[in-house]
């Protein structure tokens, strides 16, 4: 048996031509990267209370960065929502108490959204995106900020956003911590001076 194998091997070596090329399979594994959104929340120019309503505050244009390095080509959609703007202060009708006043998130509007790809990302497709509505009036419910159809938007994009805030001349009492106040919850008041804050949330989801 051993002898037979040696003979076959020897025969095989004699018949094989001299090799001068070789095919080698090379493979690389590409794994999914980040699906990520980031932004800088706006700080508005101060406004002074006047008889004008609404009083308009502006913020420098800011970029929202959207990254789809998942490599899935699923497309994506980005949403934005905001809490109502709130301010805490001493109750003017009861000095031992404090109140929280608020004006609605809908006072904040985003507009002028245009997406620009980074240098190593695919261009924006005029039909399949990334694309955005012309303006977004914020609310506590998520609103569509931008989306990209499956097969597009794979890369990194900067979304230029203009923020504008239409401050109403009235506020609503949304919190109070004492019973000595002359106010009641949800009373309407004039606009109080102070620094109002709202948490803006942006969410990026795979798929559309």
């Amino acid at each position: 048996m051993f002898k037979k194998i040696l003979m076959v091997l020897a025969s095989s070596l004699m018949l094989t031509p001299v090799a001068n090329a070789q095919d080698v399979n090379s493979s690389v594994a590409i794994s999914s990267g980040n699906l990520e959104i980031s932004f800088v929340a706006p700080t508005f120019s101060p406004i002074t209370i006047s008889d004008t309503s609404p009083m308009i505050a502006t913020a420098l244009n800011q970029n929202v960065s959207i990254t789809d390095y998942t490599g899935s080509g699923d497309g994506w959609s980005a949403t934005v929502s905001a809490d109502n703007f709130t301010l805490g202060l001493t109750d003017p009708t009861y000095s031992n108490g404090s109140i929280t006043v608020s004006f609605p998130a809908s006072s904040l509007k985003l507009s002028g959204m245009t997406a620009s790809p980074s240098s190593d990302s695919p261009p924006v497709h005029p039909t399949y995106g990334p694309a955005s509505p012309s303006e977004v009036v914020l609310s506590t419910s998520p609103q569509l900020l931008s989306s990209s159809q499956p097969g597009f938007g794979m890369g990194k994009y900067a979304l230029n956003v203009t923020y504008s805030l239409n401050v109403p001349n009235e506020a609503t009492i949304v919190g109070m911590d004492s019973s000595g106040s002359l106010y009641e919850l949800f009373d309407k008041t004039g606009l109080f001076a102070g620094t109002y804050r709202s948490t803006v949330t942006m969410n990026l989801m795979a798929g559309v």
Binding site: I37, V40, F44, T70, A82, L87
Partner: peptide, 20 residues
């Protein structure tokens, strides 16, 4: 688990209202 499906970010918008 290696395929990310969503990502959220938030920040605080600030509006300063001054008295007239």
């Amino acid at each position: 688990s290696a395929l990310p499906k969503s990502y959220a970010a938030n920040g605080s918008a600030v509006a300063t209202v001054q008295g007239g």
